[in-house]
Amino acid sequence: MTLNILFVDDEARILSAFRRQMRQMRRQWTVQCAQGGEEALAMMRDHAIDVIISDMRMPGMDGAELLTIVSEIYPRTVRIVLSGHSDREMAARAVKAAHQFLSKPCSFTHLKESIEQALILRDILRNEKLQELVGGTAQLPSLPDLYFQLVEELRQEQPSLERIGRIVARDVSMTARILQLINSPYFGLRYEIRNINHAVNYLGLDTLKSLVLLIHVFESSVKQTRLLQDFCEHSLMVASLARQICLQEEAEPEEADQAFTAGLLHDVGWLVLFHGGFLDVLPCNHDEAKLLLEERKLWGNCHAEVGAYLLCIWGIPADIVRIAAFHHKPSHAERGGISLAAVHAAEILAMDQQEPIDLLYLERLGLSEHLPHWELLYQKLKVKGVRL
């Protein structure tokens, strides 16, 4: 299927260079160019656009304003910022409007990979209403008490990055957004950050204050706080148990960090559905297996695919996206490892084994006989409670 790509920049020479660069993709992509926001919106009224790539600083309507309008009118369109202005204030302003952030100069290979990565799960998430819901998701609800704890800590004369990291790591929404931002090229990292404490320390206080206090990336109040509290507690249990499993299996510390982050984000699809009002039509029970069947009957997809699609278009590291997508059925994943096994097992154990564990996958990794030891880890965590 041909992808329709729209490139927006106020400089004609950059548009011309982009057209030349994209010629090698003419069989897979239809590429259009617009010299400014108004022209881009006019073109989108006449053409269905899969991906819009916009410069940030343009006269008149800038990139953030353009992509905000696009998110409201065309939520299924993937929105990417490509800018030569790599300051953190600009990144903080763009984070609500864009799915991904690329910096100039950007190689054709990197641009192509970013576009393909953003759309790689579109074939999995076939429901157009869910695609619109995910594509239009700029904010996810955060627990009010965690939000206010974070605000209060940031207002201290000497805020503690360690305490901030602990607060953020307890909240799925904040974790997802900060990982999205820190892994964008605005920060010039040559490696992916998958540990939320590393991300908080790298961002520093000024950027965190800008994110939380100035532009309110995180929703500070939601309905059904008790439901959201249960969700975050479950996510934190899965994350903590997944990390403990990896450490017991003598995985590398980076793998254990990845398992923790993936465990925290594994059910982010529930948060998207909750925020979009989709959960109102589901039965009010906690039987995970029945809920999964009901989701697929209603929409043809389940929350795992919804969450993975969101993380994918947000540019979250691919291994974490894969774990979110296949945490219920890891044997369906083309690639995997101990972190996927750990998150899957932790999810099943934390749900009191309401659905069968994927023994086929554990056997593939030679881990099926380790399950009783993981159950003991879970029981210990239940008794003492999860702590960071």
Score class of each variant (00 low, 15 high):
Q28N: 15
M90Q: 11
L367P: 03
S86M: 12
C246W: 12
Y186N: 13
S16I: 10
V268Q: 04
R226P: 00
T225F: 00
I320P: 04
G60Q: 05
L293E: 09
C284N: 15
Q229W: 07
L265N: 10
D55K: 02
H328C: 06
I69N: 09
E65K: 00
L247H: 07
Q21N: 13
R122T: 13
L119I: 07
I49M: 05
Y361T: 10
A318R: 13
Q156D: 11
Y378C: 10
R226Q: 04
R155L: 08
H47L: 09
R155T: 05
Q149T: 11
I323L: 03
C106E: 10
D267H: 11
F326Y: 14
E255Q: 12
D9N: 07
L292Y: 07
P317K: 04
N4Q: 15
P283T: 08
F148G: 06
T207Y: 08
A176Y: 05
A239S: 13
D352Y: 14
I80F: 09
A259W: 07
L241F: 02
C33M: 03
P356G: 03
P105S: 05
A259Q: 06
T207H: 12
E72D: 14
C312R: 06
L140V: 07
R79N: 00
L349Y: 11
G263C: 02
V268T: 09
E363C: 04
A97W: 01
I5F: 04
W29G: 08
E334S: 11
V306S: 03
V281K: 14
C312L: 02
V151E: 15
D319S: 12
W299F: 09
H47E: 06
Y202T: 02
S103V: 15
R57F: 05
E116A: 11
M58A: 03
R27L: 14
S221R: 15
G276H: 05
D358H: 05
G165S: 12
H275C: 10
K382T: 08
F274D: 14
L130D: 06
D352E: 14
L377N: 04
V172A: 09
L154G: 04
D62C: 01
I80M: 02
E219W: 04
I182L: 04
I69T: 15
Q379S: 12
C246Y: 11
I245H: 05
R170A: 12
L291P: 02
E305D: 08
R45L: 04
L282W: 06
M56V: 13
I49D: 02
D358N: 01
Q32A: 14
L125T: 08
L236W: 10
W314H: 11
L67V: 03
G188F: 03
E157H: 11
G276F: 02
A34K: 00
A17W: 06
L310W: 07
H47D: 08
R79K: 09
G37D: 00
L211I: 11
G337S: 01
Q258M: 10
L310Q: 09
R226N: 01
L367Q: 07
L371W: 14
H110K: 15
G37F: 00
S83R: 03
I73K: 06
L340T: 00
F274H: 11
N183R: 03
E294L: 08
S71M: 12
H47P: 00
E116Y: 08
D352I: 02
V81R: 00
A42C: 05
R88F: 10
S114Y: 04
L213A: 08
K209Y: 01
E192I: 05
P105V: 03
R19D: 13
I178L: 07
D280R: 15
G307E: 05
K209V: 02
P185L: 12
F101C: 10
L146V: 12
